[in-house]
Every structure is written in C-alpha cells, then in structure tokens.
C-alpha cells in the first residue's frame, strides 16, 4: 500500500531525464561529424552497443530485472559521453575497454544506478589514458587539415581492421591543446602557435564549433530544468579565471582563456559531465564549490600536468570531495536559526 501523494508530475521519469540529455547532445554530435568526418558515428555506435550489452550483462550478473533498468537510459548516456570524450577512429577494443571500465566497473561494481561515487564515463576515459596513452593522442584531424578524411565505410575499416597501409598521421593529428603545450614548452611564441592550421578563430579548429553546439545543448538542458546553472556557470568561470590569471602572468606559456573554454572537453564537461547528478555535489553551495574545484583542477592539469586535457582527472578528483562538500554545505532548513549546526554526515 502506498501513502500520499497520489498525484505524480506527468512525463517525469529517469528515462525522460536521460532522453533530454541525449537530445541535448545531438547538436554537438552533428557538429562533430560536420567538422571531423563521419568517424564519430562509428565510435558512438560502438560505445552505445557495448554500453547496452554490458549493462544487460551486469544486471543479469547482479540478479536485477533488465527492463526497468535498461530502459532508464543511463547506460546509453554514459556510453554516448564516453564516445564524445574519446578520440574517434581508435581501434574497436579501445571503446570496448573504456565502456567496460565505465559501465562495468565504475557504475555496477559501485552498486549501479545512483550509487557510483565516480563519473562512469570519466573513469572509462581515465583508464584508457593511463592504459593506452598512444591511442589517446591520435585524434581525427579536422576536415581541411587532414590529408585524408575517412568516409563512414572507411571509418569502420579503420576501427575494426586498423590503419593497414594508410599512415595514422594521414588522418590524425595532435590536439591543439597538446600542440600548444609541447610547442610553448619548446619556446615557441603564442602568436606563432595559434596560426597553425589546427587552430581556429578562437580555439581549436572544428572543436570550437562543436563546443558552441555543446553550449547550445547545455542551454536547452537549463531551459528544461534538467540541470541548474550552478555547475556549468561556476565550472566555466573557474576555468576562465584560472586560465586568465595564468595567461596574464605568462602569456608565452599559457594560452588565453577563450582558447581553453572552446577546446578539448571543456564545454562537454561543463554541461554534461560535471552536471551528472549522481557524482556531483547536491547542495546549492556545494555545487558551486564542486564546480569551482573541478574547473580549477582542469586548468591546473592543462597548464602544468602531464596530460594535454584535464577533464577526466579534474572530475574524478572533484568527485572524491563530494561527500565532504555536501556534508558541510547543507542549506539552512526552514525555521532553523541562521548559522545553526546541522546534518553533518
């Protein structure tokens, strides 16, 4: 027997939330295909298929019913985010491994939907960057820069059969973030770096438009109240602030803030990854702290770390702090005195 309330908000379910997130990703995916070729469809398809199969497998192993949990769509969102974060045109087993870490380890070994401490997609990404660093530096070069942009059929070939006779360098390149890092360290002037073909009008060529499309999708999520402003705004602000200070301090070594905001995984992270409710802080103040921490760490890793982009580690490190942040940022309850002690978990 259920007690009240007997009324429920209509069209409201985990599935609906996940469907909205997926829909908001579509502009970014299309932009990706537009600027980097159809390879993204292959990696997306592989991740989603692997994600669904692994989710089903894990549910079976855990003795849970398939239908409600498969239809919640959370595994698909994880898989899609993973596909968008990973390089396209990598070998198929890289996607399998990444999805295995994301869905199998980070999600289900931690107790499944809603229980995971770490963002599954970022665990998958981090595992790959540690385990297979070489593949994680081979990014599809934007159309117009690459000597060769594989068609959909060629992309399938590359992913499943390997490059074969074609040189990997023919269709991949270092990311602009990577390029900046190496070249700036070698003493190249910032202005000289930014005129190379892989750089665009503000950030990375192609990536900047994809990032703007993610921004558009994120704004749709905001308008639909799937996410709140706290995390994306603070995350981007913290990134921009850190990047700006670094750039002011040493323009030769550190790229300008706009470049950072529009390259790599910044926008995707701000609106789709850092906002994952399961692993993000949940109180209003906590969200600000969490997002500021993630944005700051992201820039620190980009500026001083070993990896060109810092999305995964910034998010995972911030995830670790979430229980602590939440415990100390509980909002004041109606009727309680301001500044009163409460709810320390």
């Amino acid at each position: 027997m259920n007690g009240s309330p007997f009324a429920l908000l209509g069209h409201n379910s985990v599935t609906a939330v996940m469907a909205k997130v997926m829909a908001a990703l579509i502009p970014g995916i299309i932009a990706h295909a537009w600027f980097f070729g159809p390879g993204i469809w292959v990696s997306l398809l592989l991740c989603v298929v692997f994600g669904a199969v692994l989710e089903a497998l894990m549910l079976l192993l855990r003795g849970l019913p398939l239908k409600p949990f498969l239809s919640d769509g959370s595994a698909l969102v994880t898989a899609a985010l993973l596909a968008l974060a990973l390089p396209t045109l990598a070998p198929w087993w890289l996607y399998l491994m990444a999805t295995l870490f994301a869905v199998g380890v980070a999600k289900h070994l931690y107790g499944g939907l809603g229980q995971n401490l770490f963002n599954p997609a970022m665990v998958g990404y981090a595992a790959m960057i540690i385990g297979f660093p070489v593949y994680m530096t081979q990014w599809a070069a934007p159309i117009g820069v690459a000597h060769f942009t594989p068609s959909l059929a060629e992309a399938f070939d590359l992913v499943f059969a390997g490059a074969g006779a074609i040189s990997v360098d023919a269709y991949t390149s270092a990311t602009p973030l990577d390029a900046w890092k190496t070249q700036a360290r070698q003493g190249m002037a910032g202005a000289d770096i930014l005129v190379q073909p892989i750089f665009g009008w503000a950030g990375a060529r192609g990536q900047e438009m994809v990032a703007l499309m993610y921004l558009l999708g994120g704004l749709l999520l905001l308008a639909n109240r799937v996410i709140t402003w706290h995390i994306p705004v603070t995350f981007l602000a913290a990134m921009a602030l850190t990047a700006g200070l670094l750039h002011l301090a040493n323009p030769a070594q550190h790229a300008p803030p706009l470049f950072h905001l529009l390259s790599g995984g910044a926008m995707l992270c701000a609106f789709f990854i850092a906002t994952d409710p399961v692993t993000a802080a949940s109180t209003p103040l906590g969200k600000l702290i969490y997002a500021a921490l993630a944005g700051f760490l992201m820039m620190i890793i980009r500026a001083f770390g070993a990896y060109p982009d810092g999305v995964a580690f910034a998010i995972l490190l911030a995830n670790i702090c979430v229980p602590f942040i939440d415990a100390y940022t509980q909002p004041r309850v109606f009727g309680h005195k301001r500044g009163g002690k409460r709810g320390q978990a």
Binding site: N2, G63, L64, P65, P68, F69
Partner: peptide
C-alpha cells in the same frame, strides 16, 4: 517499511 523498491529477479 515501504515495499515498492525494485525486487531482485
């Protein structure tokens, strides 16, 4: 105790 959580198959 509310008993409507997803049961194990």
């Amino acid at each position: 105790y509310p008993m409507h959580m997803m049961k194990r198959a």
